[in-house]
Simulated assay, not measured.
Amino acid sequence: MHLIRRCQAAWLVLLLACTPLWAADTVDINHADALELAAKLSGVGMTRAEAIISSRETVGPFVHPDELVRVKGIGPATLEKNRDRIVVGLSDRDVPR
């Protein structure tokens, strides 16, 4: 388990080092993978990033950034720190009919 966490941390550091500045501005919480979420959202590590993905897979896509607080460990303070970075992209299949 510790080896997995170390590998995840190493990949995160590599991702941060290789991410161009223009790409670091926003993150689509409906389509980003755990590494991207952890890299681009302040106060969100791999555990919370995986919880975001789990929430969107079980509850459904986020319709508004405020819905991010439904994820355990993400409260109003974390949401506010990241509000300008969060994008909620919906595809046609995500929109309820």
Rank of each mutant, 00 (worst) to 15 (best):
M1C: 06
H2W: 07
L3W: 11
L3N: 06
L3A: 11
L3Y: 11
I4H: 12
I4G: 00
R6T: 06
R6A: 12
R6F: 08
Q8W: 08
Q8D: 13
Q8F: 12
A9C: 03
A9R: 15
A9T: 11
A9W: 12
A10S: 14
W11V: 03
L12V: 05
L12D: 06
L16T: 02
A17C: 12
C18E: 14
T19N: 01
T19R: 05
L21W: 02
L21V: 13
A24V: 04
V27G: 05
D28C: 05
I29N: 00
N30S: 02
H31D: 05
A32I: 07
A32S: 13
D33Q: 05
A34W: 10
A34T: 06
L35H: 11
L35K: 04
L35E: 12
L37C: 05
A38Y: 04
K40E: 04
L41A: 05
L41F: 04
L41P: 01
G43Q: 01
G43F: 00
V44Q: 08
V44P: 03
T47Q: 15
T47N: 13
R48F: 02
R48A: 12
E50C: 10
A51C: 04
A51F: 03
A51I: 04
A51D: 09
A51R: 09
I52V: 15
I53R: 11
I53K: 06
I53Q: 03
R56L: 10
R56K: 11
R56S: 07
E57T: 08
E57R: 15
T58D: 06
T58F: 03
T58R: 14
T58Q: 15
G60L: 14
G60F: 04
P61K: 08
F62C: 08
F62Q: 02
E67N: 07
L68S: 09
R70K: 10
R70I: 13
V71T: 00
V71A: 02
K72P: 09
K72A: 15
K72S: 14
I74Y: 01
I74T: 06
I74A: 02
P76Y: 02
P76V: 08
P76M: 03
P76S: 14
T78V: 07
T78E: 03
T78R: 11
L79G: 07
E80T: 14
E80D: 15
E80W: 03
N82S: 10
D84Q: 13
R85T: 04
I86Y: 06
I86Q: 01
V87E: 08
V87T: 12
V88H: 01
V88L: 01
V88Q: 01
L90W: 06
L90E: 09
S91T: 15
D92L: 10
R93L: 13
R93V: 04
R93Q: 14
P96W: 12
P96E: 07
P96Y: 05
